[in-house]
Design a protein around this nucleic acid. Sequence first.
DNA 1: TAACTATATTACTTTTAAGTAAGTTATTGT
DNA 2: ACAATAACTTACTTAAAAGTAATATAGTTA
Lengths: 101, 101
Amino acid sequence: MKCPLNYTMGLIGTKWKPLILFHLLDGGLRSGILQRKIEGISNKMFTQTVRELEKDGLITRTIFPVVPPKVEYKLSKRGQSLESILRSLDKWGLQDSEINN
Amino acid sequence: MKCPLNYTMGLIGTKWKPLILFHLLDGGLRSGILQRKIEGISNKMFTQTVRELEKDGLITRTIFPVVPPKVEYKLSKRGQSLESILRSLDKWGLQDSEINN
DNA sequence: TAACTATATTACTTTTAAGTAAGTTATTGT
DNA sequence: ACAATAACTTACTTAAAAGTAATATAGTTA
């Protein structure tokens, strides 16, 4: 009895992916800015994670040919479709932590 | 800028937790039945995961003193509060996989 | 020409997650 | 007395995730 939830978790079921997607909800950000918003992430994991999100078509990556380089990440249409889920997860955390901590 | 989503992911951000919670949405199940619904999970991971969910107060564990043993898991109130999120994740997977596969 | 910038990549190590297979418990039916 | 049962538990191994630190790039400015 495989359920679609398996599929969803295969795409976004990691420590960092939902966080990165969440921080792009209000619009595209350049790489460094986005990375600084994700507290605790290492440089390696940041790059690795955004690459996977790009490969899976959840975000887009735009390179501006300037020096020093400028790279912007933003949600794709597919990534946008996770908006209400991401906001719900965040909201749940807020409410739950008020009750249980 | 820490966001509550971090907290949420700390509680349910693993491979198996959302699956287990999801399969309890329609009511409590005894251990063996629940485990058989989670395809691909090993015995060890099943026990380990339900124990963590119990420790975090997302599910309850009821032991019936019979032989052979009977143990029932069900969502706690706190676990129930994840219902709409879990169903949304499942629904998203269904819709997304229809589009992208 | 050397330092500075933003974005990444690589090699290496550590940590955590997960899997395998065998063993435990306590009673009931044979 | 011993096999069957459901629900674990344990020791051990393997695989995956994550961290650290050094390095690359290539124009710009001091």
